[in-house]
Amino acid sequence: MTRWMLPGFLTIGALATLVLIVGPAIYAISLSFFDRTSLTAEPVWVGFDNFANVLSSGAFWNALWNGFVYAGVAIVLQVVLGIGFALLLHQPFRGRALLRGVAFLPYLLPTVVAVLTFKWMIDGSLGIVTIKMADWGLPPIYWFETESAAMFSVIMVSVWLWTPFVTTTFLAGLQTIPVQLYEAARVDGAGPIRRFFHITLPSLRPILTVIILLRGVWMFNKFDVIWLTTGGGPLGATEHLPVLAYREAFRLFDIGTGAAIATLSFLVLMVIVTIYFWAFPMDDRK
């Protein structure tokens, strides 16, 4: 390595970060201080008015709450199911390699394909789920159309889509746990449940910490599933901050308010991530 390589690569990295990440972020944040009806319209400086309006609106708090519910429940389910499936796929059985491949498939599907498939399956009149339920004498459920069911439905779609990622990550983690630890625990008298809590779970902790963080951030910012299924409805029942920001900026043409919502969303996430890092430091293996 020549003596110019390190500063050279650092400079390229710093420039790319500035141009592609810091610059747009500053621009987006700056938008929130202006009143603007489109990206081409002349901006009018309004200071913190957009933030004041957003914070005093019920829609913002509703969207924030929905975001917590959507991300929180989806992560819990993804992690619990992910570990469960990983434990199953870690057991020796015939066709394991094939099943491991199949289990990863949902993650490879484009979100729009998965969402359309779900929408077909649970369509109120033609969906296979609706027809089957009718065959069994069950009343129809309007999965995306009623306030009570819509949040449950978008969470389920998200869990179906992203649990494979969690499963695969945990499966990789399980394979790094030395078999001798389990044998030592068997000799020590620990049954399967105690072995899980005393060996498996602590050994997966570094992965668990990262997965919860990553999936949490991704789910909190996840736009496509909700937009493609419910569009945030019905009556804002599934509207979270990304959908609200998009609606304000690009449907109601209030760029400033949209930017203010996005900025607040970013701040909320930053606070949560900071607390998370403090509570679960990444280098506590010793």
Partner: peptide, 15 residues
């Protein structure tokens, strides 16, 4: 009623 010492010690790393 046995106790075992493993080749790689098999100490629980997080305990």
């Amino acid at each position: 009623d046995i106790a075992m010492v493993f080749q790689n010690y098999a100490l629980y790393p997080h305990k």
